[in-house]
Amino acid sequence: MLAFLNHVINGISLGSVYAIIALGYTMVYGIAKMLNFAHGDVIMVGAYICFFAVASYGLHPILGVLLAMLVCTILGMVIERLAYKPLRQAPSLAVLITAIGMSYFLQNSAQLMWGTNQKMFPAIFGKTPFSFGGITISVTTVVTIIACVVIMLALTWFTGNTKMGKAMRACSEDKAAAQLMGINVNTTISITFAIGSALAAVAGVLLCSAYPNLVPTTGSMPGIKAFTAAVFGGIGSIPGALLGGVLLGVIEIMAKAYISTQLSDAIVFAVLIIVLLVKPTGLLGKKIREKV
């Protein structure tokens, strides 16, 4: 029973990281209607920035995280401006390929700048675990779950109550109508990318605190999993990203613990397929009615 609880907590922690990454996918998809495949690599960049800030320059971990967020925010906005904005009217496949090109670009730049050698991410949240009633939980796990909850609440408040958040929702529903209402669509999309990328930096730091091997391809598999999580919960929906991410994390850890380590990825994807067959737009996705 205790082992089971431990697995649940670990699953929620991993799922929280997926959820934070999935938010970036979901928000960008909701507004720009594009699958931003470079998102996973922004995570990697964030992790590297924090790694160098803390391990090489001896900055305080909090400062390291903030620096990573700053760099990733700028990176996300620059990527959007240079590669995606010129393709706003282009067919979605062209945008997809550009995003993939951007993903290759980031991975290979990282490889050239920082080498292919594995970096050991420092334990920035300390090593002494909490323990109560026989369950031991690492500080990283606690920080991850708290960070996820805080980010979720902040984003829900932001999209519901601020002017920019309302503009985002308007853009995701109907870009042309939003423009007619005096919303600057380009700025809104740019801000969305900025928020998504800042969250990616946080996710990168959290991910590497839990799994400390940092290489230029660190971001790709979590990126794909988080994308799956976003679809799982219903792409475009913020609570959906949380639900999808956490469920995916728990399923993955449970499959690893009770079925087979090697097959855990296959099980995760199989569950996704079953869910999509029953609910074709994800758990919390809106049902799209077809008009003739």
């Binding site: 590669a83 010129p86 393709l87 067919p91 062209a94 390929i97 090109g101 290759y104 050239l112």
Partner: peptide, 23 residues
């Protein structure tokens, strides 16, 4: 060492050139 980087840039540029209305 730069070949995959060049490949990525070629890919992005080709997509921009063939799909941006202005260009």
């Amino acid at each position: 060492d730069y070949r995959m980087l060049v490949y990525a840039i070629v890919l992005i540029l080709v997509m921009l050139i063939t799909n941006n209305p202005a260009i």
